[in-house]
Write a protein that binds this DNA or RNA. Structure first.
Length: 434
RNA sequence: GGAGGGAUGACAGAGCGGACGAAUGUACCGGUCUUGAAAACCGGCGUGGGCUUGCCCACCGUGGGUUCAAAUCCCACUCCCUCCGCCA
C-alpha cells in the first residue's frame, strides 16, 4: 500500500511516479478527495463521540448522587447525540471503506532506476553470464545433441511424464520420475545448503488466509491467478514470499535483529489464467512448481545491501550449475504490483532455444510492510516501517529443463554438473531406465 | 468429531456495567545512594488516528448486538489449553 501521508505531502511526486505505471491522475484525485472527506467526517464523528462520553460520565455522577431527574435528562440528551454519532460514524466508515478499496488497487511507486516500458519486451538486459566468461571464453555455442527440448529428453529417459501429471491433476501439472524426481530434490537441497546458514530455513504452510495474501499485495488484485479453497477460506501460495512476509506481521522488530533473513523451499501454485495456450509445452509454464525463496526484513538503509545479497546468491546457484543466464531490469509495464524495483534472472535453455525466467529479485520499499504492519523501533523510541526484499533461488522446474537440455550428451544420457554430484551419491550420469 | 476451560500491555496477572487505556509484579529506561555493581528509594515506560500541539478519538482475540455508558452483558467466529475419539 502506498503512503497516504506522502500523497498529502507531495502529491505531484506520487502522481507522476504512478503515472509511469499507468495509474491515471483522476484516480489519484479521487483518492485525495476521499481522504479529505474521510478526515472531515472523522472529526465530526469523533466530536459527537466525545460528547456522548462526557454525557454518560455525568449520568453516572448524577446516579451516584441520587439525582434521578438530572440523570434522566442527561440520558435523554445522550441518546439524541448518540443517534447523531451513529449516523456520522456510518458515513465515515463508508468513505473509509471506499478509500481503502481504491488504495488496495494502487501499485507501488517505481524506483527511478526502473525503465519505462509497456510489457516484458521493454525490459532492459543488464548483463549475461556463461561458463568461462571471466577467462575470456566467448558466449557458448551448443551442439546438435543439446538442441532437444526437455519434454523429449524427459520421455526418452523416463524422468518426466506430463501425461500422467495431466491424468492426475489436469494439464500443466508435471510429474517427475526416478532420477528426474531426484534431480528436483537435489536442486532444492543444493540451494538450501548454500544459503540456510545466513538465511534461517523455514518450512511454512502451503496455504494462507486471505489476510495473509493481502499483506504481500497478491490480493485483491491478482485473485484470478491464485487457487483458492473456498470452503476453508484458504489460498494456495503462489510463492513462499507470501508466508514469509506475514511471519512477523504486526510485529515491532528490534533493529539489532535486522536484516532478518529467511529462506524456504515450498511448492508454488499459479493458475496462469491469462496465459492459456501460450508457451505451455513441457515445463515452460506449469501450475505447480518447487522453489527456494530468499527473503529479508531490513532497515531502509540496509535495503540496497539486502537486495544485492539475494541477487548475488541467486546468481551463485546458477553459476554453480554452470548455466548461461541473463539479468533483466524490469520495466514499468512488467513490474509486479508491490515492487519498486525488480531484476529477473533468465536461464538460457538450448533445447527450446529460449531464455526462461527462473528468479525475480524485488525490493518492495515499505509497501508490503505497510500492509503487513511490520515495523522497527528507532533509537529515539518511535516506530517506522521496515523494508522487504525477496528473490527466488531458484524456480526449479525451468532449471530442471535447462539442466537436462544443457547437459545432454551425444549418446542421449545426461552428465550432471559437479555441484549436484553429492546429491546423487557421486553418480553424475542419468541414463534411460532399462 | 465430542465435552470442558481460556484469550487483557514486552511477560505474568487483576478487573467482570460508570471516574478503566486499564491495578499489581517482573523486565526495561532515567535519577538518588555507592569507589563500582547489586539492593533500596524516586520518576518514566503500549499502538495507531485526527486537528486548532494541547486536546480529542480508537484499540482488552475477531466481527456483530444490548445500553445514556461495554475490557466487563448477549450472539457468532477464530485461536490456545485439558480430556475422549480418530489418525501419519
Amino acid at each position: 500500500m502506498i503512503d497516504l501521508a506522502q500523497l498529502r505531502r507531495e502529491p505531484d511526486v506520487v502522481k507522476s511516479a504512478l503515472a509511469r505505471r499507468g495509474v491515471s491522475s483522476s484516480t489519484m484525485d479521487e483518492i485525495e478527495l476521499l481522504d479529505v472527506e474521510h478526515r472531515r467526517l472523522l472529526q465530526e464523528a469523533e466530536a459527537l463521540r466525545a460528547q456522548v462520553k462526557e454525557l454518560s460520565r455525568r449520568v453516572g455522577d448524577a446516579r451516584r448522587a441520587k439525582d434521578t431527574v438530572t440523570a434522566e435528562e442527561l440520558t435523554e440528551k445522550s441518546r439524541v447525540v448518540g443517534d447523531e454519532e451513529r449516523a456520522a460514524s456510518e458515513a465515515t466508515d463508508a468513505v473509509a471503506l471506499k478509500l481503502r478499496s481504491l488504495l488496495l488497487m494502487i501499485p507501488n511507486l517505481p524506483d527511478s532506476r526502473v525503465p519505462d516500458g509497456a510489457d516484458e519486451n521493454d525490459n532492459v538486459e543488464l548483463r549475461r553470464w556463461w561458463v568461462g566468461m571471466h577467462e575470456g571464453a566467448p558466449f557458448p555455442t551448443y551442439e546438435e545433441h543439446q538442441r532437444v527440448p526437455h519434454w523429449e529428453i524427459g520421455t526418452e529417459l523416463g524422468i518426466l511424464d506430463m501425461e500422467s501429471g495431466a491424468k492426475i491433476a489436469g494439464s500443466m501439472f508435471p510429474l517427475f520420475r526416478g532420477a528426474g524426481s531426484k534431480l528436483l530434490r537435489a536442486l532444492s537441497s543444493l540451494s538450501l545448503d548454500k544459503n540456510a546458514g545466513e538465511y534461517e530455513e523455514i518450512r511454512p504452510p502451503t496455504f494462507a488466509l486471505t489476510e495473509t495474501m493481502m499483506s504481500t499485495g497478491h490480493l485483491p488484485k491478482s485473485a484470478d491467478d491464485m487457487y483458492s479453497i473456498e470452503r476453508d477460506g484458504l489460498w494456495a501460495i503462489p510463492t513462499a514470499e507470501v508466508p514469509l512476509t506475514s511471519l512477523r506481521r504486526g510485529d515491532i522488530l528490534d533493529p539489532a535483529t535486522l536484516p532478518l533473513r529467511l529462506c524456504a523451499a515450498t511448492a508454488c501454485f499459479r493458475r496462469e489464467a491469462g496465459a492459456a495456450g501460450k508457451d505451455t509445452r513441457g515445463l515452460l509454464r506449469v501450475h505447480e512448481f518447487d522453489k527456494v525463496e530468499l527473503f529479508a526484513y531490513c532497515l531502509p538503509e540496509q535495503s540496497d545491501e539486502a537486495f544485492n545479497d539475494v541477487l548475488q546468491r541467486a546468481e551463485a546457484v546458477l553459476q554453480a550449475l554452470g548455466l548461461t543466464y541473463q539479468l533483466l531490469e524490469l520495466c514499468t509495464g512488467d513490474l509486479g504490483t508491490a515492487s519498486a524495483y525488480t531484476i529477473d534472472l533468465n536461464v538460457y535453455s538450448p533445447g527450446v532455444d529460449r531464455w526462461l525466467e527462473v528468479s525475480s529479485v524485488s525490493w518492495f520499499r515499505d509497501f508490503q510492510a505497510r500492509r503487513a504492519n511490520v515495523r522497527y523501533r528507532a533509537p529515539d523510541g518511535s516506530t517506522a516501517l521496515v523494508h522487504t526484499v525477496n528473490g527466488s533461488a531458484l524456480g526449479w522446474v525451468r532449471i530442471w529443463a535447462a539442466v537436462v537440455e544443457t547437459y545432454r550428451q551425444a549418446d542421449g544420457s545426461i552428465t550432471l554438473p559437479q555441484a549436484l554430484a553429492p546429491y546423487f551419491g557421486g553418480e553424475r550420469t542419468i541414463r534411460a531406465r532399462s
